[in-house]
């Protein structure tokens, strides 16, 4: 299967690979997996407590090129956004940006899950109950073509 140029770019030149101090109160960690393919993805965010802006993001993914590209793109996108803005990122946005084929849509779902899990972890650490995003309009998950 041919990967799109953008996937190849993120795959061979992934952004923000690495880790942040998971014990820091400013850091949220999300570890998620896709049982369909056995991929694991860790995504971490560092949030400025005064502004709620995500100042840094790191990831490490063990999986296929699309999973790596999806998480690489996710870290790029969340940086500079507030926590609530980051929660509006949809797997469909990732699919579109990377031109993922239907069989790789689960990779984009995994990346969205990772963002959500990292933010959830950060909120938990900071005593916020994750009700804020309930107001966000749900969008349908991209279906197979």
């Amino acid at each position: 299967m041919a990967y799109s140029d953008k996937v190849l770019d993120h795959y061979s030149n992934p952004r923000n690979v690495g880790s942040l101090d998971k014990n820091s109160a400013e850091v949220g960690t999300g570890l998620v997996g896709a049982p369909e393919c056995g991929d694991v993805m860790k995504l971490q965010i560092k949030v400025n407590p005064a502004t709620n802006i995500i100042e840094d993001a790191k990831f490490k993914t063990f999986g296929c090129g699309s999973a790596i590209a999806s998480s690489s793109l996710a870290t790029e996108w969340v940086k500079g956004k507030t926590v609530d803005e980051a929660l509006t990122i949809r797997n469909t946005d990732i699919v579109k940006e990377l031109s993922l084929p239907p069989v790789k849509i689960h990779c984009s779902v995994l990346a969205e899950d990772a963002i959500r899990a990292a933010i959830g972890d950060w909120k938990k650490k900071n005593g916020q109950h994750s009700q804020a995003q309930a107001a966000v309009q749900p969008a349908p998950v991209e279906q197979r073509a």
Partner: peptide, 28 residues
């Protein structure tokens, strides 16, 4: 998996991972 993601979006709750966290940790 998709349905669980949609549910997480809708309710704002964390998505329940289909494999236990300690296994994900070990795999990682």
């Amino acid at each position: 998996s998709k349905a669980a993601t949609e549910e997480a979006r809708r309710t704002g709750k964390l998505k329940k991972q289909v494999v236990p966290p300690d296994l994900l940790e070990q795999v990682f």
